[in-house]
Design a binder for these strands. Structure first.
Length: 421
RNA sequence: GCGAGCGUAGCCAAGUGGUUAAGGCAGUGGAUUGUGGUUCCACCAUUCGGGGGUUCGAUUCCCCUCGUUCGCCCCA
């Protein structure tokens, strides 16, 4: 075809699907509002530097997945690959920390990553995220996780599993890292190629390799949880017991490592088995170092992000939703009737009804087919006879019953006839 | 970036090395129909994702390319 198509990794959300998005957004807004979170909207592009410093130059996201380009002024810009860096930038830039106390923020919008598209993965995708800034309290970690769980439950997706880990602080991780290198080095030759390369660069990542031989070796590797310092351990134990307290089930997964450098302490993911190769619907954790890294005061923070395309995939599987149907469908034929139908539609809409007017002018038979498909409770029929007599024929689509009445009376009685309960 | 499968109309889909590429749904136009949704007729792919090659001839065989799907990597 010579026509222009959407770019690879991007797609149109058509009306039949958009209803799922609206539903999910409505549920999220309501829940977040009730939990005292405030929406923040940050730009879709930022200075490239923000992501390099925030996410970490060694990460794959920064190293090979960013949409970076120079603008006409020669500045290096990047389409945001995730939401946290921008939110923290805004937090610092506008001195939100100076308002004191804890800031609870949420955002929703498109993110961009240059990757090969796959089930549940696109180049432009959408995330819903929350960030709690200014609290070191383990209750903040748990509040945020509980919020995620509640959101899933409200969507009817309570079968997702929560995986939990702590990656400790910088010192904990350094000690753990050397322990891992020490453990894996003797096996080096047996590891898969990727993992061999990761041994020097990022040994933590070896743990979640999918290669069976590597997995077998990694099974007996030391656990990060044994390398947490006393403070880290106390924090994590608190998080675990508070979750248990709330009755939120979780599974400890010492191999859970998050891909962005800014994470510290608590790390978690909600997983599903029905997303093809992708299992994470959303994930997050603590990032106590990021605010200061980006030039703000030392500020502890926790948050998460959910991949909305993935959520929509799951949502479509559990609850089929249809776009709201119209209440009334108006069918007309002949110039006078058509003009009256147009006015009738407008008058009924003023009364609050959802009215669809057939614009085709085709045979009544075809117009009725469309009336059925519209989901309306009744069709209003205006033909030559009705046009002349000033009446309208009313047909209940479910029963097929018909009645004729004057147009003025229909308008006067509309609330009673089609009353919205 | 790497690997595998798949590209015939808006959707589903048959098909063949040889003058006009089945069919269904949807759509468009018209006729018919007043217990108005029926029925009928016509239209709806100068072309089989695109380009090149082999051949007298290719949608069919070969190569390249693009797209798509799935997987690896990575992530949400």
């Amino acid at each position: 075809m010579g026509s222009i198509q959407a770019l690879r990794g991007t797609r149109d959300i058509l009306p039949e699907e958009v209803f799922y998005w609206q539903h999910l957004e409505a549920v999220a807004r309501e829940l977040l509002q009730r939990s005292a979170y405030q929406e923040i909207r940050t730009p879709l592009f930022e200075q490239t530097d923000l992501f390099e410093r925030g996410i970490g130059e060694a990460t794959d996201v920064v190293g090979k997945e960013m949409y970076s380009f120079e603008d006409r002024g020669g500045r290096s810009l990047t389409l945001r690959p995730e939401g946290t860096a921008g939110v923290v930038r805004a937090y610092v830039e506008h001195g939100l920390h100076a308002q004191g106390g804890v800031q609870r923020l949420w955002y929703l919008g498109p993110m961009f990553r240059y990757e090969r598209p796959q089930a549940g993965r696109q180049r432009q995708f959408h995330q819903l995220g929350v960030e709690v800034l200014g609290s070191r309290d383990p209750r903040a970690d748990v509040e945020v996780i509980a919020l995620f769980a509640d959101f899933l439950m409200k969507l009817g997706l309570s079968e997702l599993s929560l995986e939990l880990n702590s990656v400790g602080n910088l010192e904990d991780r350094q000690r753990y890292r050397s322990a891992l290198v020490e453990y894996f080095t003797p096996y080096q030759a047996e590891l898969d190629a990727d993992s061999q390369e990761r041994l020097g660069r990022n040994p933590l990542r070896i743990l979640d390799s999918k290669d069976p031989r590597t997995q077998a070796i990694a099974k007996d590797a030391p656990s990060i949880l044994d390398y947490l310092g006393p403070d880290s351990k106390a924090h994590f134990d608190q998080v675990c017991s508070l979750l248990t307290n709330l009755g939120i089930p979780y599974r400890l997964d010492p191999s859970l490592v998050r891909g962005l450098d800014y994470y510290t302490h608590t790390a978690f993911e909600f997983k599903s088995g029905s997303l093809g190769a992708q299992s994470a619907v959303g994930g997050g954790g603590r990032y106590d170092g990021l605010v200061s890294e980006l030039g703000g005061p030392d500020t502890a923070a926790v948050g998460w992000a959910i991949g909305l395309e993935r959520l929509v995939i799951l949502l479509q599987a559990v609850q089929p939703l249809a776009a709201p149907a119209v209440n009334l469908y108006i069918v007309s034929r002949g110039p006078i009737a058509e003009a009256k139908a147009l006015k009738l539609a407008r008058d009924l809409r003023k009364q609050g009804f959802a009215v669809e007017l057939d614009l085709s002018g085709s045979a009544f038979g075809k117009q009725f087919k469309r009336a059925d498909r519209s989901g309306a409770v009744a069709a209003l029929i205006l033909g030559d006879e009705e046009a002349q007599s000033g009446t309208v024929q009313l047909k209940w689509l479910a029963s097929g019953e018909q009645q004729t009445l004057p147009q003025a009376q229909l308008l006067a009685d509309a609330q009673r006839l089609f009353g919205k309960e």
